[in-house]
Design a binder for these strands. Structure first.
Length: 614
RNA sequence: GGGGACGUAGCUCAAUUGGUUAGAGCACCGGACUGUCGAUCCGGAGGUUGCGGGUUCGAGUCCCGUCGUCCUCGCCA
């Protein structure tokens, strides 16, 4: 008797194999039973192959007729062309559609009960696979091994493998060493909440799982490993989002004797390699650079989606000429009035939909959203009646009538034409940014300003971040990035006198509206580090108690160094074109950080707790 | 911790204003069928409408609570 083990995969056989004896292993994708023959589509991660079992082999025909979806089979038989008489009957929707395997032996390697949801894949045009309607995600997470059989998820995880491989190849070629750092480490008080692990041999003491290998990698620089990287698991006990998991993977990277441009060159080469070798997409370098302040002004976000324009425009100077108190009052109180031109949207949005836009603004902390429709000769609706001249200033263009000049200025500033919808938000500047930024992404999605399925990637650097942000609750300056981020050289003199104006040598990498990486040049000078801690309201003693081991290391000949961490789950999301991080992780946790398959986190034995002194 | 959406057959969904016996497609079971290919056709079985309470002559539908899932704000140096 021949072996049950496969000679070929289910995606492999072509007309060149016709006449060969083969063995296939796989899962029953679909089956079609006739009185005299049974067709079984056998699936593995390479594809689907049709198997025919005919009634003249009664011993296997009976088995084949019993077979159901997701049973695991071994089929031995002969490859033949799909024919009826002398007529070709190829299935052009299937990569293996020119052939089928006529079964001579069939072994059931394992049976399967009716699955809780449908797993099978459906061939579609272009020899790819479609899928049945997806079941609820929590059900799919509970039976993750079934969900993972879906070709889409199998392709995504294969893409993720490729991403890791390209990263290792590219960084190896660029002279980097892949080094590992501990999972059991020391809790450092700033940043996210730690996941804690109790120590059995030191009762009452705790390890913390790493939020990132940040401190270790800086110490590796002190130790002379001048080009380091690691594909590192990071853990943060914070509330989750569609693009956040409690444990996630970063490409962690650090270099010595570098400035910003050196880090950028390495990552740009890496981005080129990743997109070329994972998707065949060519990324042009150097990548565009966007100043933080410019990003906030034009896009209302520090991670703008650059696949579309729809830029925010400041209209404060024009708004000041109106009689509209909502505008004038805000401006006189030091706020801002800015606008978006939703081009061509005037007829697309009902009054109700415009009200929904105002709701979005309110959710972002704004008071609301003013709007006006642009017609050929004039504005209409919304705040049109308020866009008249201020009686205290002479009308610069009497011929156009009161308001004509203001409307003309807005037309020019916003590049408006008939059919456009203008949206205004007046508020404190940070609220205006937040509200219009949210509105911008919403409008782009509704107005279909980009194709979410296209191989369209807009990658850019954001830099010139402020070093500090004022923490209003704690009444102190807080580190915007982390407290080891170097300030810009020219701002060092302002560290104590004007912390709010100090810019950091920090940078983010953004792809299509997602923050996909962030890093900085670090402080390597103990004196600067000490001054920075003081700005943060941290005494030398306090800093020493928290980060003493790093400060010690920096004393012993630390080279200038800097690096970056890339969020690989988000990179995988970009490559797979999904907005759900759980789609790119084999065994993800749900929004409450639970693993619905294993049931973690779960209670443990009292004995275990006792051993740990808990 | 706050806001929002959802929860009906194994799965995806429907069920008019609160009104008869809660329906459909897929899956499942049985039958028919000589080449199907997400086969087709015929038939069958399948329901504590998440759970608990309330209002009502009457609740899938309304109210309160609770559990679960997702999205989001806070949070994530």
């Amino acid at each position: 008797m021949s072996s049950w083990q496969r000679t070929h995969t289910c995606g492999e056989l072509r007309d060149a194999h016709i006449g060969q004896a083969v063995t296939l292993n796989g899962w029953v994708n679909t089956f079609r039973a006739y009185p005299d023959q049974v067709f079984l589509d056998l699936r593995d991660r390479y594809g689907v192959t049709q198997v025919v079992v005919e009634a003249d082999r009664p011993e296997i025909f009976k088995l084949a007729a019993e077979t159901r979806g997701e049973w695991v089979l071994s089929i031995t038989g002969r490859v033949r062309e799909r024919m009826i008489g002398s007529e070709k009957k190829h299935n052009t929707k299937l990569a293996t559609g020119a052939i089928e395997v006529l079964a001579e032996d069939l072994r059931v390697l394992n049976r399967c009960p009716t699955p809780p949801f449908e797993v099978f894949s459906v061939p579609q045009e272009g020899h790819t696979f479609g899928e049945p309607e997806l079941a609820n995600e929590d059900l799919r997470l509970q039976y993750r091994y079934l969900d993972l059989r879906r070709p889409t998820l199998q392709r995504t995880l294969a893409m993720r493998h490729r991403l890791n491989k390209v990263i290792r190849d590219s960084l190896d070629a660029q002279g980097f060493l892949e080094l590992e750092t501990p999972l059991l480490g020391r809790s450092t008080p700033e940043g996210a909440r730690d996941y804690l692990v109790p120590s059995r041999v030191s009762l009452g003491s705790w390890y913390a799982l790493p939020q990132s290998p940040q401190l270790y990698k800086q110490i590796l620089m002190v130790a002379g490993y001048d080009k380091y990287f690691q594909i590192a698991r990071c853990l943060r006990d914070e509330d989750l989002r569609a693009d956040r998991q409690p444990e996630f993977t970063q490409l962690d990277l650090e270099m010595s004797f570098v400035e910003i441009d050196d880090v950028f060159r390495v990552i740009e080469q890496l981005a080129v390699d990743v997109f070329q070798r994972c998707l065949g997409v060519t990324i042009k370098t150097p990548l565009p650079r966007l100043k933080y302040a410019e990003a906030m002004l034009k896009y209302g976000s520090d991670k703008p989606d650059l696949r579309y324009g729809l830029e925010i425009v400041d209209v404060g100077d024009i708004a000041l000429q109106t009689e509209f108190q909502a505008f004038r009052g805000t401006l006189e109180a030091g706020g801002a009035v800015r606008a978006l031109n939703a081009s061509g949207a005037a007829d697309k949005f009902s009054r109700k939909q415009i009200d929904e836009l105002a709701e979005i603004v309110k959710r972002s902390g704004g008071k609301g959203c003013a709007w006006v429709k642009v017609e050929a000769e004039k504005f209409a609706g919304g705040i049109e009646k308020f866009l008249t001249g201020n009686p205290l200033t002479p009308n610069p263009s009497p011929a156009e009538g009161r308001g004509g000049a203001i409307q003309q200025q807005l037309r020019e500033r916003l590049n408006a034409k008939a059919g456009d919808l203008l949206l205004f938000v007046a508020d404190k500047e940070d609220v205006v940014c937040q509200a219009l930024g949210t509105l911008r992404t919403h409008l782009a999605s509704v107005l279909k300003l980009y194709d979410p399925n296209a191989l369209d990637y807009k990658i850019a650097w954001v830099l010139d971040f402020p070093s500090f942000i004022w923490d209003d609750e704690e009444k102190r300056w807080a580190a915007n990035h982390h407290p080891f981020t170097a300030p810009m050289d020219e701002d060092l003199t302002k560290l104590e006198s004007d912390p709010g104006s100090v810019k950091a040598k920090a940078y983010d990498l953004i792809i299509n509206g997602y923050e996909c990486g962030g890093g900085s040049i670090r402080i390597h000078n103990p004196e600067v580090q000490s001054r920075l801690f003081k700005v943060l309201g941290m005494s030398d003693e306090l800093a020493r108690s928290r980060f003493g081991f790093l400060l010690d290391a920096l004393q012993f000949g630390a080279p200038p160094h800097g690096g970056i961490a890339l969020g690989l789950d988000r990179w995988a999301m970009m490559l797979a074109r999904t907005s759900n991080i759980r789609d790119v992780i084999a065994f993800p946790k749900n929004q409450k950080a639970r693993d619905l398959m294993t049931g973690a986190p779960a209670a443990v034995d009292a004995k275990q707790l006792k051993e740990l002194g808990l």
